[in-house]
């Protein structure tokens, strides 16, 4: 394929991946990697690097739009970032030791989990008003805007949240995804933050997590500018459009179609890994 056709295809592909990723909550990386590998024949090692770039673009593009609304809990974000960033550095290191088929399998499992979590939708967890001892000491409790005015909420089980976040960091660096699904799970199910606060805080953290591991990928030569440049452009545009559309769209059907596509991609990645296509 010649350079200009490839550039334009990746540009359109990453814009679509980040647009749909931000609309469905699956993130740009989950869609971009299969697209690059299965459709455009890109080596998985380049694809993971490019996908981390898409993750940062999605996080940056969306945060530029959401940041003002007062949902993000910066204190919780910073505490948990310590764990995700540590996990990401470890994951990036491990990624250099294992072979491509293993990474493809890990990636597929992450896809299946994300698709399942996305289909299930928002959980019926009722946030608590109270915080436990550690959360109180760190003053993590806050409030968020609702229709009936400002609603205070408490935070619990910080150590469990940290452990899950560490795992999310490792997975993010290994598979080249944002692993927003695990981050949201850790915050709303475990730490009992309101869903909207969990998703915005997760988005705030995703870019930081990916940035931690992408440096390692850069030194390893997995960030190929001929592939990543169109991803930067497409990713930023796609996620900004996505963030603007999100409040106005009913995303239920989109999620279902998308989860099916993602599951299909996961199955194909798995098959390729097992028969030795990498």
């Amino acid at each position: 394929m010649d350079a200009s056709t490839f550039f334009i295809l990746v540009l359109i592909g990453s814009a679509a991946a980040c647009l749909l990723g931000s609309l469905t909550g699956l993130g740009g990386g989950a869609v971009l990697t299969p697209l690059l590998v299965l459709v455009l024949g890109v080596d998985l090692r380049y694809a993971i690097g490019a996908s981390l770039i898409a993750v940062i673009a999605t996080s940056s593009g969306a945060t530029a739009t959401f940041a003002r609304e007062g949902f993000t809990n910066i204190r919780v974000g910073v505490v948990l970032e310590v764990a995700t960033v540590a996990g990401a550095l470890l994951g990036a290191y491990i990624a250099g030791l294992v072979d491509k088929s293993t990474i493809a399998i890990v990636f597929s499992i992450a896809l299946f989990w994300s698709a399942w979590a996305t289909l299930r939708g928002a959980p019926p967890v009722v946030p608590t008003g109270e915080s436990d001892a550690l959360a109180t000491r760190l003053r993590l409790a806050s409030s968020h805007p609702t229709h009936g005015g400002s609603q205070p909420y408490g935070v619990v089980r910080v150590p469990s949240g940290l452990a899950l976040m560490f795992g999310a960091g490792v997975l993010s660096a290994l598979a080249g995804i944002g692993s927003g699904v695990i981050k949201v799970l850790a915050m709303d199910r475990v730490m009992r933050l309101p869903f909207k606060v969990s998703t915005t805080t997760s988005n705030f953290m995703i870019g930081v997590t990916a940035a931690a591991s992408v440096g390692v990928y850069l030194h390893r030569g997995q960030i190929e500018p001929r592939i990543c440049a169109p991803v930067v452009l497409g990713g930023l545009v796609g996620s900004m459009v996505g963030a603007r559309l999100l409040p106005r769209l009913r995303t239920r059907w989109l999620r279902v179609i998308f989860a099916i596509v993602v599951i299909g991609a996961g199955v194909e990645m798995c098959r390729k890994a097992i028969v030795g296509g990498f």
Binding site: D2, A3, S4, F7, L40, V42, G221, P225, I227
Partner: peptide, 27 residues
């Protein structure tokens, strides 16, 4: 960079597989 690259190498083949580490200075 993209415009510069496409003007100079529009018809060139892109190397996307198998993986070879990116050109040393770019790392």
């Amino acid at each position: 960079g993209g415009v510069l690259y496409l003007v100079r190498h529009a018809g060139a083949r892109v190397h996307v597989a198998p993986f070879e580490p990116a050109h040393e200075p770019l790392r």
